[in-house]
Amino acid sequence: MNVFRLAGDMTHLLSVVVLLLKIHTIKSCAGISLKTQELYAVVFAARYLDLFVHFVSLYNTVMKLVFLASSFSIVWYMKRHKIVRRTYDKDHDTFRHYVLVLPCLLLALLINEKFTFREVMWAFSIYLEAVAIFPQLVLLQRTRNIDNLTGQYVFFLGAYRVLYILNWIYRYFTEPHFVHWISWVAGIVQTLLYADFFYYYIMSWKNNVKLELPA
């Protein structure tokens, strides 16, 4: 495993930790999109179907379990926890799941590395992850006061994507057969979705003002 991949996994993990910290200690999920969180739970469930069939390493298995457990518990907190759920901004989180899920499913049936159930689900998870941040970005745009933890959460998620691209470039040069168009194209699309957010995030940090996205 190269340094970019490890740093990518760590920022991904950090984003989850930041979000759990917000939910667990502040008991608030204000500014967080439940739609995005539900989509991530679907992404991990679809991708990690191989969890008990295909062993890569202890690291891999543990990380998969962490992402599965954290994504489902975040959804649980936002829907069921009696204090946290009251802070959920339902009125502004109006994105419809099927708008993203159905095209991704269709695309996975058409474009996959092998037409087997697990491979189609894997491709589906890659496509869905690429667009799952969409409801979150829409919600941020509608939120007047974006708190620091929410901004950091999205920032770490975006950093994870950038680092994964560096990881693929590194792997391409060190493992010449490592060509996976599905994850590369989807990954680049996913990273571009963050470009706008990154711009405003860095500007707000540089000018020391509160983060706000233009409507």
Binding site: D50, V56, N60, N167, F178, S183
Partner: peptide
């Protein structure tokens, strides 16, 4: 039947 190595990522 071996897995594609892209599946060693998370």
């Amino acid at each position: 039947d071996s897995e594609p190595e892209s599946h060693d990522e998370l």
